[in-house]
C-alpha cells in the first residue's frame, strides 16, 4: 500500500511542479497586467520543442541550450507584447484575452510548420537509475523537475523582495498610476513581466520535455492545467501558484490511484470547484494586496 501511495505522490509532485511553474507564469503576468494569457501553453510548447531542436538536434550542451531556449522564448513573448498587446487602443481585458487566444492558434500553427506534426522525445537530463524508496521508483528527472521548479520560484521570490526592479514591479502591480507617479517606468515593467512570464513558460516546457512527448499541440492541455493551478492557489500569488500546482498534480494522481483513471480530470476539477466555493479568491488570498 505504502509503495503505491508513494508512487502516486511521486507522480503527483512531478506533474504538480510543472503545473506550478506554468501557473507562476500566468500569475506573474496577471499581477502586472490583469491579463490571462491563453497563449501561455504555447510558450511551454515552444520551450519544449526548442530544447528538442537545440539539445536533441544540434547537440548544444544542456545548460547552454537551456539558457538559449528560455531567452529565445522570452524574446518571443517580448515581441508578442510589443506587436500585439501594446498596439490595442483603449484595452479592455477581455479583448486582450481574445488576442492571446488568437496568438495561441498562431503560435501552434508556427510550431506545426517548424517542427511538423510528429512528436519528439528527448532523453532525461541525467542518466541515473530510478531511486528505490519502499518499492516505489523515483526518477532522476522528477528530482530535476522539482529542483529546477523550486530554484526558479525562489529566484523570482528574491527578485521581487530584494531587487529594486522587482520592488518596482510589485509597485506597478499594486497601482500602475501610483507607481508611474513615483517615476517607475510602468510600461517597461509590463514588458518585463511578459519577458519573465513567457520565460517561465519555457522553463516548464524544458523540464517536462524528457518525461513526455513533445509536439506542436502539447501546449493547450498544459496551459489549461497551469491556469487551473494559478486560480486554485490565488491569482497573483507566487507561492500560491506553486502550491496550486502541487495540489492539482497530487489530486490528479490520487484520483487515478483511488478512484478511476477515466474520471481523474473530473475528480480534480470537482475538488477544484469545491475549493473555489469555499475560498473564492484562491487558497492564498492576501487581504488587501492581491498581488505579489
Amino acid at each position: 500500500m505504502l509503495q503505491e501511495l508513494l508512487q502516486y505522490l511521486f507522480s503527483g509532485i512531478t506533474n504538480g511542479a510543472i503545473y506550478g511553474v506554468i501557473a507562476v507564469g500566468f500569475s506573474m503576468l496577471y499581477s502586472s497586467t490583469e491579463l490571462i494569457n491563453f497563449a501561455h501553453g504555447e510558450f511551454v510548447m515552444l520551450g519544449a520543442l526548442g530544447l528538442v531542436s537545440l539539445w536533441g538536434g544540434l547537440g548544444i550542451p544542456l545548460p547552454v541550450a537551456f539558457l538559449l531556449v528560455v531567452i529565445g522564448v522570452a524574446v518571443v513573448g517580448f515581441l508578442f507584447e510589443r506587436l500585439a498587446i501594446r498596439t490595442v487602443r483603449k484595452p479592455n481585458p477581455i479583448v486582450l484575452v481574445i488576442i492571446t487566444v488568437g496568438a495561441s492558434i498562431f503560435l501552434r500553427g508556427i510550431g506545426m510548420l517548424t517542427w511538423g506534426k510528429d512528436a519528439y522525445s528527448v532523453p532525461p537530463f541525467s542518466d541515473h537509475d530510478p531511486i528505490d524508496l519502499a518499492g516505489a521508483k523515483l526518477l532522476s528527472q522528477s528530482i530535476w523537475i522539482v529542483g529546477i521548479a523550486l530554484f526558479f520560484v525562489i529566484l523570482l521570490h528574491l527578485f521581487f523582495k530584494k531587487t529594486l526592479t522587482g520592488k518596482a514591479m510589485i509597485a506597478c502591480a499594486i497601482s500602475k498610476k501610483a507607481a508611474w507617479l513615483t517615476g517607475i517606468p510602468s510600461e517597461r515593467m509590463v514588458l518585463l513581466a511578459f519577458f519573465l512570464s513567457t520565460g517561465m513558460g519555457a522553463v516548464a516546457g524544458i523540464i517536462i520535455a524528457p518525461i513526455t512527448m513533445c509536439s506542436y499541440d502539447m501546449g493547450t492541455m498544459l496551459g489549461l492545467k497551469g491556469f487551473c493551478a494559478a486560480m486554485l492557489g490565488g491569482l497573483g500569488s507566487l507561492w500560491g501558484s506553486i502550491l496550486g500546482g502541487f495540489i492539482l498534480g497530487i489530486l490528479e494522481s490520487l484520483g487515478v490511484g483511488f478512484f478511476s483513471s477515466s474520471m481523474k480530470d473530473a475528480i480534480a476539477f470537482f475538488l477544484l470547484l469545491l475549493i473555489l466555493y469555499v475560498r473564492p479568491g484562491g487558497i492564498i488570498m492576501a487581504k488587501d494586496i492581491k498581488r505579489f
Binding site: N92, V95, I98, F106, G109
Partner: peptide, 20 residues
C-alpha cells in the same frame, strides 16, 4: 492548407487589435 492555423490566428489578433 498548412498555413491555415497561422492565418486564422493572425486574423483573430488583427481584428481585435484594429477593432477592439
Amino acid at each position: 492548407s498548412e498555413f491555415e492555423m497561422v492565418v486564422y490566428g493572425l486574423i483573430l489578433m488583427l481584428v481585435m487589435v484594429l477593432l477592439p
